[in-house]
Design a protein around this nucleic acid. Sequence first.
DNA 1: CTGTTAGCGCTTTCAA
DNA 2: TTGAAAGCGCTAACAG
Lengths: 359, 359
Amino acid sequence: MVASIEDVARRAGVSIATVSRALRGLPDVAASTRDRVLAAATDLDYVASPFAARLASGRTSTVGLVVPFVNRWFFSEVISSVETQLRESNFDLLLYNLGTEEGRARFFAMMPARKRVDGLVVAGLVLNDAEYEALGELGLPVGLLGLEHDGFLSVSIDNIAAARQAVDHLVELGHRRIALIGGDSGDPMRFTPPLRRRDGFADALRAVGAEPDPQLERVGYFTVEGGREAARHLLALPDRPTAIFAESDEMAYGAIREIYAAGLRIPDDVAVVGFDDQPFSTLMDLTTVRQPVVAQALDVTTRLLASIADRGAARASDGDLDPPDDTGDEHPVTTGAVVLDTELVVRASTVGPTGAGRS
Amino acid sequence: MVASIEDVARRAGVSIATVSRALRGLPDVAASTRDRVLAAATDLDYVASPFAARLASGRTSTVGLVVPFVNRWFFSEVISSVETQLRESNFDLLLYNLGTEEGRARFFAMMPARKRVDGLVVAGLVLNDAEYEALGELGLPVGLLGLEHDGFLSVSIDNIAAARQAVDHLVELGHRRIALIGGDSGDPMRFTPPLRRRDGFADALRAVGAEPDPQLERVGYFTVEGGREAARHLLALPDRPTAIFAESDEMAYGAIREIYAAGLRIPDDVAVVGFDDQPFSTLMDLTTVRQPVVAQALDVTTRLLASIADRGAARASDGDLDPPDDTGDEHPVTTGAVVLDTELVVRASTVGPTGAGRS
DNA sequence: CTGTTAGCGCTTTCAA
DNA sequence: TTGAAAGCGCTAACAG
């Protein structure tokens, strides 16, 4: 019932090979022929069957995107950006949401993406050696987002430097008793490259001769609730901190809530800095470190697609005369670790008055 | 380099047909044979090429999910739920983010999902007739989430009743000058089935003999910023409202912010009710109408998969003797419009004191 | 510039 | 219960 390439060929009066070439925009097709084929295809409302094409060509025109969550700000931004860019390149996006620890185990054991994608973007997962090995054995281009590993192209931010931006800011404001609300290094989902943010925090303190006080470090699990819980403890301390640095905005929101609940003022009694700059942070007047999510997504996707194209070209020629100068096995642009800049966004949670009208 | 069905067949000493049957768990394969095949497949680390399978069988084992946004709460919840359930059924999820008006136009013009999915879930888009027609012509099972249309299976909430829950609550608290912050009926993305929430708002007022005041209705575009803008106008009115009903939580957050910025108290000076019950609403102490997102996603997905299975079965038999009693053309469970309940969640934005400590 | 001809790796009759 | 063989609808040499 639905038109196939033969129908188009018949109608245009050419062979199916010519139809295939014309429709894919390959060179060496006479303009008049191409027009005729295009017209026939339009008339018949024809689109090529992707599966037949994939089977015959070996290319899937599909990229897999692996994430630990889809409903958190960072990841939904990533998904959105990657999807848009793939669509523009006529690639399909296959989404793999690892979700739980068992989902994650299943993914790396079965590798469902095998044989069905040309490349993979892995976002925000801290992988162990076995998992990196599993990815490597796929024999496909893999792009990492938010993490870094030898042999994989990657893009991320400098979490240490970014955390320093936040804490340096507090230090400059005169704060010395600064608390940290962080992730959980024992998190089973290990979705926390942010772990290194703690180092930046400590560096900033030590730079002014202050030593991080273990009492002022609490785990917040990267959730609002976790942030509340952590802040509650910190505020109950006999010598409570004058400022809090949360490793994510969500935890900062929780902290803000608890500070108000304790009848304290922000930033007069306690200043707060977050990390990410989600949209809500404007609403919450939260000073935070903005990380470029869309730019990171764009970067991996672009380089992954380039890598896929390269590999296709390489396989096509395979020992041509006059190969490119670079005799290395990989194209320079499609490999290596890119690190993007972060930016401190100062709002009323550190430099009053808060605009929330709670004067 | 990677094992194919022939390798497995050779190793197990059977034909490729038998391998195919054994691996797919079809009946009529001797247990011993099956074991041998399974062992061979495991040894060779074999997985079937999905494209070859799809080409040969005509089934794609893929569902397309069409959304207007991926980075809004409602949709990221939907994506997450649908992905999980599809994965469990061994289906792939192909994500279509319409994003812009042109992306939307392209989608309905090209129908990129054509020939590559067994069914489609369309979430949160108000479609016009041409678009419904385009979906119908696909000849595939289509499930609608958050909207309703003849001939498509769908799940949604009763937006009128839900809005009434919200406004009835305000009315019971004695409010009569109640403002509405709503969507934009002229929204080019038309992602606002919530339009009918306005009807529920009006109904609730009329039920107590109050007439909705056009001055108290503002457009908030379903964003925080839009909600702020709308609230700013409402609060500047000579006779300002005593309560605000926002058609989404995000707009309510914006309103809350402006109320505080104006130096007013919540709920004493102005009460606020939202719609959705996003996680942040707990933080914001927002009274709101909770809509079951996961349940809606589960419902469409389940019924869509059933419909896909039905259709597969139907095609397989095709005029068998003794067909099911129901001579209609569709399985009862896989069609029709399901409407799920909403629930009012009362918090301090309507019944003080707010826990935010802004006493 | 265009046509012919093999497959791609499976599923699915149809026979045995 | 199993095997042989015919495609599924394309792409990719290879000729011409």
